[in-house]
Design a protein around this nucleic acid. Structure first.
Lengths: 352, 352
DNA sequence: GTGAAAGCGCTAACAA
DNA sequence: TTGTTAGCGCTTTCAC
């Protein structure tokens, strides 16, 4: 392997433009104190030579690394990739994050980190030391892991917390889970439903509670009883089966169910089929996440759309601008969720 | 922003172990000429202090960057992310690539590059200059873009070419497209099918031809005529509609169709439904790619499984070891595709 | 087998 | 407004 060196360095540009390294550096970084004429001269040398600064060198000399680190839960992510059930969480993160990074000359690097493990700290420290990212994006359940936020805080690395209220630092961003659940409930009420069941997600995620709360509020607004219409799952298909068997095994069973994930909604659909309950004629079904699978099932699922791409995009933006202005949002940035109505919901069955 | 410095550097380790920087460097990089005892002493200092080398510094001083760059087609990738049709190509790349990278202390960075555009070269040069990756993974259709391979060749950056035969350099890896298409054809023949239609993919991808060739061979082996049973699409759903209308509009229509992508197979299913042709009773359907959607449609699609994760994993491995041994595979590395049989295929209708 | 010195490409701090 | 100097953390080269 021949020692690979930078083809065009700041020196070449400086020589070509007949200025000092510093002036070139100022131009690259859009810093003040450069005459316009000078700036143009340098820029034209840059363009002519096709000069691109080495981010390694930039990082070395103590400035930015132009790297944003996105932290995801290792087990869950790998499991999702292996299972191939069409969850496109990572894709949507990339869509929002990479493109926004690219706009600013940054890159996004994904890192998988264990949640439960003792070596979260070691792993994260290693990633920070190796990469020295300018910002870190935390996704649930990392967003509320004090080991992680504490470390980031201690190392003074700016970080965004998706799905967190942000107590104790960082930029909190939430996706309007409660409002979305409430609106979905309202919509079902509008369709005449009175017994609306809810399948909650894992307690490990705070958004599970928010979603449930939205349903609760929606029901209360309509003056409908909640009774024991809420059953807890863990977002996975199997837990959805158990929850749906519980809800649909009752007499009378709920005429509508909101599931906190698409997989649990699918499970509910399958249980309904098992029991001869037609969707949407006898049971309306709404799910959370709106992963691709919702459009391919029969019937297609009405789903609350998590605006992942937009949220990550905002997070990246805030992280990058955090370098200049220090004005960071203290109260959570709310990216509202959408609702995609498909044929899995309909009017409540008459007489129910 | 306080100037963020490395917490623990090679100096700290050297001081702690009472050796020179050089010796520590040798230990980190597993180089020879260090006594075992010395190595242990240094290693224990490293562990004690939790030292992790900065990849920026490593790159600066002319060694590796510990970065592998994965190049994907910009338009197609963004389009796929936006459409949310469950293609998990990127996820599978990450699954194979990231994990293998992690094993070796590398990271994978995804970069989107235009294919058709004039500035492929500028974009790629910029990415190489900024990141200085130790290796590049090319995916179709970049794998056979001479502008790209030429540039990589000129810059002496090791690169892998997925879905390419590798004329002109780089490490070629293919996913057994021809064999897979042939085997699928054989399976359909086995089920009694005689008129097996084929929907080809875009000519821009070489694997389109390989897939078609496999079908051709399979048909020839069985002594079946090909006639005009092959129609070309572009992998997308809409092109599948056109192709399927053509094939299924004939009298007699094919009793089986192999589509070169899941989306085109879905289109064929929809056209069949439109025409009242039952799947699999009157039409057997096989697709390529085996993206998640295949399991959620009704009926679930039999599909040839592209071993993307495994292929990218192999590519990363070859790229990383390319640094030590210079023995790179010249003839294409073949990762065989799988075949997942689901209920979209069945015996040929009697009398057909 | 080990260490000392030079330098990678860039920016911070300071000087002019 | 511009230039000079001194590193950043590491590996290379070469001396011992």
């Amino acid at each position: 392997m021949p020692r690979r060196r930078q083809a065009v360095t700041i020196k070449h540009v400086a020589a070509d433009a007949g200025v000092s390294l510093q002036t070139v550096s100022r131009v690259i970084n859009n810093e003040p104190n450069v005459r316009d004429e000078m700036r143009k001269r340098v820029q034209s040398s840059i363009d002519k030579l096709g000069y691109i600064p080495s981010i390694a060198a930039q990082r070395m000399s103590g400035s930015r690394s132009y790297l944003i680190l996105a932290l995801n839960d290792r087990d869950r992510t790998i499991e999702a990739w292996r299972a191939r059930q069409g969850s496109d969480w990572v894709d949507q993160m990339l869509l929002g994050g990479m493109l926004k990074c690219a706009e600013h000359g940054y890159r996004m690097v994904i890192e998988l980190v264990d949640t439960h493990n003792d070596h979260v700290e070691r792993e994260l420290k290693a990633a920070l030391a190796a990469l020295q990212p300018d910002g870190v994006i935390l996704t649930p359940p990392h967003s509320d892991n004090p080991l992680i936020t504490g470390l980031l805080e201690a190392q003074h690395v700016p970080y965004a917390r998706i799905g967190s209220l942000g107590e104790g630092g960082g930029i909190p961003l939430v996706m309007g889970d409660e409002e979305a659940a409430r609106d979905a409930t309202r919509r079902l009420v509008e369709l005449g439903h009175k017994r609306i069941g809810f399948i909650a997600g894992s307690n490990e995620y705070r958004l599970s509670e928010w979603r449930k709360q939205g349903w609760r509020v929606g029901m209360a607004e309509a003056g409908l009883p909640i009774d024991n219409l809420c059953v807890r799952g863990d977002f996975g298909y199997d837990s959805g089966l158990v929850a749906a068997r519980d809800l649909l095994g009752r007499d009378p069973h709920p005429t509508a169910i909101i599931a906190s994930s698409d997989q649990m909604a699918l499970a509910a659909r399958d249980v309904a089929a098992e029991l001869g309950i037609a969707v949407p004629d006898h049971l309306s079904l709404v799910s959370f996440d709106n992963t691709p699978v919702t459009t391919f099932t029969s019937p297609p699922l009405s789903a609350i759309d998590q605006p992942i791409a937009e949220t990550v995009s905002r997070a990246v933006e805030l992280l990058i601008t955090a370098h200049r202005s220090k004005e960071l949002p203290q109260s959570p940035v709310v990216i509202p969720a959408g609702f995609v109505e498909r044929s899995s919901i309909g009017p409540a069955p008459v007489g129910a």
